[in-house]
Design a protein around this nucleic acid. Structure first.
Lengths: 118, 118
DNA sequence: CCCGAATTACGATAGGTGTCGTACAATGGC
DNA sequence: GCCATTGTACGACACCTATCGTAATTCGGG
């Protein structure tokens, strides 16, 4: 009905200064999560969870998105029944300059090297 | 038991092309291991395990060094009763250009931010 | 040839984690 | 109001992992 759908469901995000390097590295060390992050990185805007077609169930997908959110790697906002996901680029770049880009570049190089892209 | 006393106990290392980004990120996502890597990074030469004074037992320290070696982050060589540890900078920089430096810089920034250095 | 120093091996343990399946909840369109 | 779409909650399970303590191994030196 409303032109601007204001969702009431709130999601807990760590503030910028609560983000820990160890947590970010751990979040990125899982193949599924790294794949999600890579897709978010090349996306022009936020992507819904259903956009991703991962070789795991929806339950597991939900789990991975939560890990990414709670570690501060992504931001999640409800819009209707969907949940939009976006990288927290600014926060990450402020805390860990250049880190995300290097990880993404490394992931691209490795995917190319192994011939298995995600 | 044997007669070969060339002090060459061999340790299994992954070859460069066996190193995986996920494994490296996972290895670096542990506080103890990140601390070890940071110390190795500023060292002029290889360091023995006993050089490090970590708040864990020697058994646990051995475990962490093994994780770092098996993930390809460090190289370990026996010399007498000691075991010398060094970063595999060249291999890592070839595989993942700039990644290690950014992680180290991020770790330094975070340590400064949190006021808790290692 | 024994001793001490450095490190490992082994077993144990508590907690984390990736995965699944099924049942449940929120939302927007009809 | 109903229902399809989207995602969550919860329980379960196998596996991994960080940690410890103690016993064992390797090596150089006396």
């Amino acid at each position: 009905m409303n032109a601007v759908t204001t969702s009431t469901r709130e999601l807990a995000h760590p503030t910028r200064d609560e983000i820990r390097l160890e947590g970010v590295l751990h979040a990125l060390s899982d193949p599924m999560r790294l794949r999600i992050v890579r897709e978010l990185a090349v996306a022009e805007s936020d992507l819904s969870c259903s956009y991703f077609t991962l070789p795991v169930t929806k339950s597991t997908t939900t789990h991975h998105f939560r890990v990414l959110r709670e570690s501060g790697v992504i931001r999640q906002v409800y819009r209707g029944t969907a949940k939009l996901n976006g990288l927290r680029r600014e926060d990450l770049d402020l805390l860990f300059p250049g880190l995300l880009d290097r990880v993404l570049a490394a992931a691209a190089l490795e995917a190319d090297r192994l011939g298995t892209d995600g």
